[in-house]
Computed example of a mutant assay.
Amino acid sequence: MVAEWVSFNVIDTERQDWARGWAKLKEYVEREGHARVPYGHREGATPLGQWVAEQRRAFTAGEMNGLRARRLEQLGMVWSLADKRFQENLEAARAYYEEHWTLWAPRTAAMLDRPVGQWLSNLRRPGALDGHPEWKTALEAVDGDWNPSWPAAWQRH
């Protein structure tokens, strides 16, 4: 019994550190309503933002066991912030398309409190979608002509 206690409380500090990080994240989620912790955020002496970033890295690298991943997902963990932001902006783009029948929004256009015009303009830049073919497919599903070869002025009219 003593050996088990020593093993858990002294030798297995990684498990304790993870449990403390998870508890701090749970407190954060209960207070803020989400698990998107800024990298520099601290909860007391705990660098929670760094801890969350390390959990994302471990998950992406396949170094996290399923139980930990499920526990974090129950708190609302977002594994890819870029994908999450893309989905939020895509929802705004869909709303813009339903109202204007095009995704050739002026840069100043906003929808659902998101700068959809600037976002789409950024995505039209050469190489912006490299490594994200699923994003291009999602945009084409909304508007097949979201990024045509003809001029923007012509498309808008």
Rank of each mutant, 00 (worst) to 15 (best):
N147G: 01
L123Y: 07
A19R: 08
D143Y: 13
E54I: 00
Q87P: 00
D130M: 02
Q74L: 08
E32N: 08
H41G: 04
A109W: 10
F8L: 14
A105N: 11
G144V: 09
V2T: 12
R114A: 13
A153F: 11
G62E: 05
V2E: 10
L112I: 12
Q74W: 06
R31S: 01
L103C: 08
A152W: 11
E30W: 01
A53F: 09
P38R: 06
A110P: 01
R31N: 07
K26D: 15
K24R: 09
Q155Y: 02
T13F: 06
H157P: 00
E32P: 04
T60K: 15
N147H: 13
H157D: 06
E14N: 07
R124C: 08
S80V: 12
Y96K: 02
E140D: 07
Y97L: 15
E91V: 04
S149Y: 14
V142M: 01
E140H: 00
A92G: 03
A128L: 08
Q87A: 14
R42E: 06
E98Q: 15
E98D: 15
G33E: 05
E32G: 01
N147E: 03
L75F: 10
A69M: 07
V52I: 07
A141P: 03
A110M: 14
M64L: 15
V78N: 03
R15Q: 14
D17F: 05
S121H: 15
F86A: 05
W104T: 02
R68E: 10
W135H: 10
D113V: 09
T108W: 03
E140R: 08
A58L: 14
T13L: 08
E4I: 11
H34Y: 03
K24W: 00
Q118Y: 05
L25H: 02
P126D: 12
A58V: 04
P126V: 03
R107A: 15
L81W: 13
P106D: 12
W79H: 08
L67Q: 03
A23D: 07
R70K: 02
V10S: 02
L67K: 00
W119I: 00
A92P: 04
M1R: 09
P133Y: 11
W79R: 09
P38Q: 09
V116Y: 04
P126I: 12
H157I: 00
N147K: 13
E73I: 01
L72Q: 03
W51V: 08
P126L: 10
K26N: 12
V78Y: 02
E91S: 10
P38H: 10
R42M: 03
H41S: 01
E30Q: 12
M77K: 04
Q55Y: 04
Q50H: 09
P106Y: 02
G21V: 01
G40Y: 13
G40A: 14
W150T: 13
R20V: 11
P148R: 08
E73F: 03
V6S: 11
R68K: 06
L112N: 15
E140V: 00
F59Y: 14
A3F: 14
E63D: 09
R85Y: 03
V29D: 05
P133H: 08
V10E: 11
Q118M: 13
T137W: 04
S149M: 10
Q118A: 14
D113W: 12
Y96R: 05
R124N: 02
W146A: 04
